[in-house]
Design a binder for these strands. Sequence first.
DNA 1: TTACTAATATACCTACCGGTATATATAATT
DNA 2: AATTATATATACCGGTAGGTATATTAGTAA
Lengths: 188, 188
Amino acid sequence: MDNRSKLLSEALNLFSDRGFDAVGVQEIVNVCGVKKPTLYHYFKNKIGLLETIFSENFVALKNQISLASEYKHDITNNLNQITKTFFEYAKEHQKFYRMQLSMYFSPPENEVHQIAIKYNKELHDLLEEMFKNAVKDHGNFRDREGLYAATYLGMVNTYIGMFLNRYVEIDEALIYRLVHQFMHGIFS
Amino acid sequence: MDNRSKLLSEALNLFSDRGFDAVGVQEIVNVCGVKKPTLYHYFKNKIGLLETIFSENFVALKNQISLASEYKHDITNNLNQITKTFFEYAKEHQKFYRMQLSMYFSPPENEVHQIAIKYNKELHDLLEEMFKNAVKDHGNFRDREGLYAATYLGMVNTYIGMFLNRYVEIDEALIYRLVHQFMHGIFS
DNA sequence: TTACTAATATACCTACCGGTATATATAATT
DNA sequence: AATTATATATACCGGTAGGTATATTAGTAA
């Protein structure tokens, strides 16, 4: 594996385990067996390294969610598809998802929070768009599209968090449970 | 206000806004108008300062949750009481709750995570105990008490997170929604 | 008054932080 | 063969991190 990929991969591991601020660039390059200028050759600075990790890992997730959220007059089906996509992605990219989640919840004025917010907003917007399209069939969704998107994302991340901490296993039953719990919340 | 209280209060503010690692002890003492040895006179070290913030802020919450989770053959009532307690506490201690939440979600090997886990486990155990007591009346709860406690805490924190980011207002309706969404999840 | 303890200040420690100036090696292009 | 762009190494920068040795002050107890 080339040094650039090695740096991205090892930095992700370290950030995921201990946090961005707690890991120094010196440690990253040590683990990779390279020197500091090599890191700064490929990335603008430490935060730029993180930005690259985010952008390269988010592409796939965003594309899949984009597909799964295409509204075709069956919101339940959409939610099932989206949930499945999230769960499978989290399962296959546990290190990244863990890091991403922790940064999403990190303090508002922390630089890493801004980055996490930026990428998560793209997902939020896809979901909001879907709920907006569903207003044709579900009039009572009107003006709550953003709220629904946020609530749904919150629930997905709650369950993924429980999975990452080995409280639940990801399977069809969990998808069913989440979707119906969410739907019950918005239809009653 | 005495220097000890000032240090606790200003450190909480800074940690909540920017994160534990991102704030130096020098900055804390500057804001308080004291010198470093004063901080180290009252607290063992930086992490000891955080420990004190946690222990002094968690006492009230834990006591209230302990009361609200006393099982009296009406689990719905318990959940309503507990939810109300959480919401009111989060509303009155926004800075602390924000910090506490972010640390709960911070990376597993990060020192602050361990502290957050330790205190949250006490709440988890209270809820698990309540669900255990409820098994007498709800046999289908058996062996899922821990899972229910975790799921419920996850939902509460999701809603509190949305409140802290001004996505929802905390009121009776929100309590009702959360409790019924959770109950629907476990009774179906 | 003396002795003791709690509280605060001055000044300083080592270690490490993120980042870079500069040189060199390798490989592709002309 | 000469030139250029890419990639890596040596050595170093100023700044700040958490933490402390030591002295001084203020208040309390004997």
